[in-house]
Design a protein around this nucleic acid. Structure first.
Lengths: 202, 202
DNA sequence: GTCTATAATTAGATAGAC
DNA sequence: GTCTATCTAATTATAGAC
């Protein structure tokens, strides 16, 4: 009992958790920017001001680091939650706004990491698909309840994927530089149309 | 003049162009499958039944091989051309059908190579954007001629990008396994709506 | 034109001192 | 917990024989 314990929990505090955190943040940034294959453990360590060996000490392997870096930052699950409260009427606009607002703030962008990596790295391809399936697709399908729900949700997923690609990866103008409100204006009705518009046949 | 010259041109024939061609095909397949970073020159050489050194002999560097592998296979430019003949009425459906039919045949899929690589490799990111800009965006904007043409075409690009991602990269069902006709049914109206539907405001 | 051998570099991972 | 040193393996790339 020489100092106050800021964590409020018993045991050691201010341990290597700090380095671990810095490494994690660096890993998130680099994986997001260069994907899995394009990011080296050495680069992560350098960015974090730590030693490469530390990375392996904490996360065992590059894969482990990748998995840990993809843990959803707090706030993302609740953001997803906010999409689903309020029913189906404005869900298109809400979905676009939530998506873009969260992906625009650089810290909460594991999806960008994933999409960047999904093209060259099988593991992240699975992670991406699983996350989308579990958190978005499945919930929307049950929410719709119609026979063509699967197709409708797939169409919406294409909107989301395309928008994310255009704004964050391929950077197609004017999508990349547009304001959040513009994007909601453009894509909200489109997304809404996918879910509650005229039946897409078959 | 010991043998007939199948190429019909003077000079040597049946030279290293055969190896070059095999290497090029192998490179296209592997770049498409694993992206730039995930493809090794050795793997390309092995796939082509050639020596790694040959690859460097013909293409100088891995970058050079990549650039050469992205040369549009014959038929793709004319396919793009066919989208634009016939006016604006059915252009959505024509665009979706042409896109999917060409990308489904594995040999004519440099776009898949590009999108797979665009996420981790800056060079391919530029190649992808330039190609889309020159061959699709610019022509569509002039074809539309309206003030909001840029936005409309951007919306269409998102459809194309999202559809390609969902079918070929992330493999979202039922998009990935759908027939060409289904995709035209689902995305044709959506694409048409982007170009000639109600104004997207602003 | 084709291949063998190998140089040069880089990345992932481990051992062990402090 | 942290760092230095190092190992091993893979990769890009070159030199040179045939």
């Amino acid at each position: 009992m020489t100092e106050p314990n800021p964590s409020g929990r018993p045991g050691r505090w201010r341990s290597g958790a700090e380095s671990r955190q810095r490494i994690l943040e660096a890993a998130r940034a680099l994986f997001r920017e260069h994907g899995y294959g394009g990011t080296t453990v050495r680069a992560v360590a350098a960015e974090a001001g730590a030693d490469p060996a530390m990375v392996f000490y904490f996360f065992g392997t590059k894969q482990g680091l990748f998995g840990a870096a993809l843990e959803m930052p707090e706030g993302v699950p609740t953001a997803i939650e906010s999409i689903f409260v309020g029913g189906l009427d404005d869900i298109g606009a809400r979905m676009v706004r939530t998506l873009v607002e969260n992906l625009d703030t650089s810290d909460r962008a594991p999806f960008v990491t994933l999409t960047r990596s999904a093209l060259t790295h099988d593991e992240s391809e699975n992670l991406l698909r699983q996350y989308i399936d579990r958190e978005i697709t499945a919930r929307l399908v049950t929410l719709l309840g119609t026979p063509d729900a699967a197709v409708r949700v797939a169409l919406l997923n294409v909107q989301v994927l395309g928008l994310a690609m255009a704004r964050y990866i391929v950077r197609i103008e004017p999508i990349a530089s547009a304001s959040v409100d513009d994007l909601v204006t453009w894509f909200g009705p489109l997304a809404q149309h996918c879910l509650t518009g005229p039946a897409p046949s078959r």
